[in-house]
């Protein structure tokens, strides 16, 4: 059984005019099929308005499909009495760190989830300490979240989800508002959680470099899954990606350009390290 199974999921927004009459219907998610296995690191790529955030909100029952079904651990997300189990199983981190902080002290914010779940206070303390430690924010536990940097705030948000002991974390463009340092912090924290603690990760992003650690990438366009595969398979298609408002990592773009010039470089380069190695290899042949 997959951890999350989205079957034929469709979601529509209804647009209304000033008088409330239906003006049109926007199909934000269109017949999407996705299966997420335990331990996966999934990336969902797509341009602004491609429907990726709307899709993400289906994974923990914040939205329900108008057609199709989403299953979490085998339970339909529409089942009312499973709602809190589902939200505890699949936690979510949002884009704007300021709009998801509830507490005025870091540790109180992290405790919010377990408090809602009715966890006993002694265990809440244990979970808070552990979660803050695993995102390396323990020493900030008494600080006011308002005074932290963007990267630190997002790590607190991740800790807040971890304290609910989820099996899966969905991150909706978590680095969009951060500086390079903040981005590095979040990406290494997320990768570590996936590798060391075995937490399933679903990362929504439009930064190509952030999906390199994923084992599976879904590319969305106009609400549909336009491509899927490993990062290596996906980034071979630079032209198709460009057509839907995306691009490929700089190293892949560079390799592609060199190939066009007739330089002997493989077509599945992803990282700068690989590119350097291949250029050196190729030079030695000459």
């Amino acid at each position: 059984m997959s951890l999350i199974n989205a079957e034929n999921v469709t979601f529509e927004y209804i647009r209304r005019d000033k008088d409330g009459a239906v003006e049109g219907i926007n199909r934000a998610v269109d017949e999407v099929e996705i299966a997420v296995e335990k331990g996966d690191f999934i990336a969902i790529l797509g341009h602004n308005g491609s429907g990726k955030s709307t899709l993400a909100k289906h994974f923990n029952a914040l939205l329900h499909p108008v057609e199709g079904t989403v299953f979490v651990n085998g339970y339909d997300t529409r089942e009312e009495d499973r709602l809190w189990d589902i939200r505890q199983t699949v936690g979510m981190v949002f884009q704007n760190p300021d709009n998801q902080i509830i507490g005025t002290v870091v540790e109180e914010d992290v405790a919010f989830g377990p408090e809602n779940m009715g966890v006993r206070s002694r265990e809440i303390w244990e979970r808070v300490v552990q979660s803050l430690k695993s995102v390396d924010m323990y020493e900030y536990r008494k600080k006011s979240p308002q005074r932290l940097s963007g990267g630190q705030k997002q790590r607190v948000a991740i800790a807040g989800v971890l304290a609910m002991k989820p099996e899966c974390i969905v991150l909706d463009e978590p680095t969009a508002m951060l500086d390079p340092q903040g981005r590095r912090e979040i990406m290494s924290a997320v990768t570590e959680l996936n590798r060391k603690e075995g937490i399933t990760v679903i990362l929504i992003t439009h930064y190509m470099e952030e999906v390199l650690n994923a084992n599976k990438v879904f590319v969305m366009d106009k609400g549909r899954i336009a491509m899927q595969g490993t990062p290596r398979q996906i980034f071979k298609h630079a032209d198709e990606l460009k057509e839907i408002g995306l691009t490929v990592p700089v190293a892949a773009l560079f390799a592609g350009e060199l190939r066009k010039r007739g330089v002997d470089i493989p077509d599945d380069i992803l990282t700068t390290e690989e590119l350097v190695k291949e250029i050196c290899r190729s030079l030695r042949i000459i």
Partner: peptide, 27 residues
């Protein structure tokens, strides 16, 4: 309104459902 909407979604995602059955870290 945007802040409020986002915050409400974030609270829901963290299992907030009113005071019922809620415990406290610092009673």
């Amino acid at each position: 309104f945007r802040h409020a909407g986002d915050l409400a979604t974030a609270m829901e995602a963290r299992c907030y459902h009113g005071g019922e059955g809620r415990t406290r870290m610092k009673p």
